[in-house]
């Protein structure tokens, strides 16, 4: 039987070439796929988008300003109310020994005015403006206030939706 002898001196060129060919076709296809899928928006796209962004940014700044203003306004009212209450309490304590003082007279007049309004409301609408109904109105106001503040935190949107 005749033996055939091969003399291969450069394995890497053979094996490298084989794997290289497949790889090259792969890279050619990858490149062509990328080229075919590629697309660019119109030239005005970026400009229009940035305009929208700057408008949105302006609105956001305005919102922050309005929010700060509203908060400081509410804060001022609450603080003045508390100061007024403390001041009134202090004056009442000071005048408690004196009969017929100016402040006591003013408070009496205020009470009479409330009673008159209450009587008129009873005759017209059929209910009295007593401490209980005042408390209900107060609770309703607090609930509305809390709801308007809370909805910012409760109704948060999920990303991308």
């Amino acid at each position: 039987m005749k033996k055939i002898h091969f003399n291969i001196s450069n394995f890497s060129s053979i094996l490298g070439g084989m794997s290289g060919e497949g790889k090259n076709i792969d890279s050619y296809l990858n490149e062509q796929i990328s080229l075919s899928l590629n697309a660019m928006p119109s030239q005005t796209f970026e400009e229009e988008l940035l305009k929208r962004i700057s408008i949105e940014n302006e609105f956001r700044k305005q919102d922050v300003k309005t929010d700060k203003l509203a908060k400081s306004f509410i804060g001022t009212i609450v603080v003045s109310f508390i100061v007024l209450l403390i001041f009134a309490g202090f004056l009442l304590n000071k005048n408690s020994g004196e009969s017929g003082g100016y402040l006591v007279n003013a408070l009496d007049m205020f009470t009479v005015a409330i009673e008159t309004v209450s009587l008129q409301l009873t005759s017209i609408l059929g209910f009295t403006l007593g401490p209980q109904s005042a408390a209900i109105v107060l609770v309703l106001l607090v609930s509305i206030f809390l709801y308007s503040m809370a909805d910012k935190f409760v109704f948060r949107k999920s990303p991308g939706k």
């Binding site: 697309a39 660019m40 928006p41 796209f45 988008l49 940035l50």
Partner: peptide, 11 residues
């Protein structure tokens, strides 16, 4: 960000 992503995201 717009410059970096607009082309690719548009595709």
């Amino acid at each position: 960000i717009v410059r970096e992503f607009s082309g690719k995201a548009f595709a």
